[in-house]
Amino acid sequence: MPSPTYRREMPQRYRLEAAKCKKCGKLFFPPRLVCAGCGSKEFDKTKLSETGTILSHTMIRVAPADFATQVPYAIAIVESDNGVRVTTQVVDCKPEDLEIGKKVKFIFRKLYEEGHTGIICYGYKTVLV
């Protein structure tokens, strides 16, 4: 991933920043220019809650090259306590520990490295609470 793209997404990846529609209150992660709920173009800055719930989960066993050494790793769709859904890894756990409905918290981790010489890509993941 080129560094300009990486830097642009930092507020979301590093700090879970989201946007809240001033008109209808819908939350967007990442922030958008137009509200998909009501069409409004005005937003307040907000953040995802630090904890959430697993809505579905899987173990990735065949991964793209950047993630190949990490297999198997767990991916879940998590709904934050303030109602925003994200796709995220659930780390430091065994496959059998995962269940729909379990609580997780967001943590800061390394996602992958661009080989031995490229940039190191960080962002959010989750662990079971």
């Binding site: 991933m1 992660f29 990442p30 991964a63 793209p64 890894q89």
Partner: peptide, 17 residues
């Protein structure tokens, strides 16, 4: 930016479904 960056694959997305 928000699915693939996390390491999800197509089998992974359908597995979630």
């Amino acid at each position: 930016e928000y699915e693939v960056y996390q390491g999800v694959t197509f089998p992974g997305l359908y597995a979630l479904i």
